[in-house]
Structure formats: C-alpha cells, structure tokens
C-alpha cells in the first residue's frame, strides 16, 4: 500500500499543518510509514502553498510525489499550479467556494470546508474540516488516529473546536461521527 496525497491552498490556510497531522496520524498512531514534505514561497500569507504526504506500509525512498493519488485543493491558484500532476483516476477534493474552475474531465468531490468552519465559528479550522473529509473519503488513516493526532497538534483551548471540525468534515463525507 502506498498513497500519495497532495494538499494545496494559499499560505496561511494551514495546508502544511493538515499534512503534518495526517502524516502524524499514520506514522505515530496507525503504525504506518509516512513522509511529509512541503514547499512554500517567501510570503508569510498568500501565495500558493503545497504539502505532500506519502503514507505506506513499507519504507519510503523518494520523498516527493510525481503524480498524486489524492489531490486536495483549497484555492484556485493552488489548483491551477499543483492540480495537474495527478494519477488517472485520482481523487480530487476541492473547496468549491475557493476553487471555481476545475478540469471538467476530472471528477471532483466538493467539500465546503471554509463554509462549514465558518458555521463552527472560526474559518481557521477549515483545514481540519477538510482533513476529516479526506480521511473519511480515502480511509488512508483511521478516524481514531486522526483525532488523536489532531488533538495533540493544537493548543488545549482549541481542542474542542478542532474535534468538532474533524467530525463535521467526516460527516460531510458520509462517514459516521467519531465515538465520544
């Protein structure tokens, strides 16, 4: 098993954080092998940011991703820039409020992560909503591992918000809510 996942958006949206949590869920909590790399511009906010995670059940050599199995795009600029290098039949997940135009030949799964996060009271957790959806749709990590990795990666006072964000993302993807 080897899944190559690319998460992209604009700088400041937390796409790197999302990738780190996903990798941590796999490597620390699910006993899998994971390798996470990233690229970003010199800007602190804005610009296209990209993070990649490889999750496998064997050692990982080349740490980059040539063609992704899963693409998550949270901005139009990032979609345009990083959306093409995907495998035939790759799963493409977009936030439709931020990615307006996409390749019609590639089916996409829309997840209104930012809108949902807004409903939860803070758009800052849009990345975590998306992460919940990604995990539910791809089953690349277990929900328990993802929850554990998320909670240990955020400040204590934001744990509840992040837990709700994760659950909301999983629900959107049609997966049962986590046990309390």
């Amino acid at each position: 098993m080897k899944r190559e996942i690319r998460i992209c958006g604009f700088g400041g949206q937390g796409v790197i954080t999302a990738a780190v949590i996903l990798g941590k869920a796999a490597a620390v909590h699910d006993g899998l092998t994971a390798c996470q790399v990233q690229s970003y511009g010199p800007e602190a906010r804005g610009g296209a940011a990209r993070a990649e995670v490889i999750i496998a059940d064997q050692p990982i050599g080349y740490p980059g991703i040539h063609l992704a199995d899963v693409l998550v795009a949270m901005s139009q600029e990032a979609y345009n820039r990083y959306g093409r290098a995907i495998k035939p039949g790759a799963m493409v997940i977009i936030d439709p409020d931020l990615v307006f135009q996409h390749d019609e030949a590639r089916p996409v799964t829309p997840v209104r992560a930012t809108k949902i996060a807004e409903g939860l009271g803070n758009t800052v957790v849009a990345n975590i909503v998306m992460l919940g959806a990604v995990a539910a749709l791809t089953r690349v990590v277990s929900p328990e591992a993802l929850l554990a990795a998320t909670l240990e990666s955020v400040p204590a006072r934001f744990r509840e918000l992040n837990r709700r964000a994760l659950e909301a993302g999983m629900q959107v993807a049609g997966v049962p809510v986590l046990a309390q």
């Binding site: 620390v28 092998t33 390798c35």
Partner: peptide, 9 residues
Amino acid sequence: GELGHMRER
C-alpha cells in the same frame, strides 16, 4: 533543506 524540513516517524 529537503531532509532538514522533511517529517518522518
């Protein structure tokens, strides 16, 4: 820089 910023178990 790649290995320095790469995350693994």
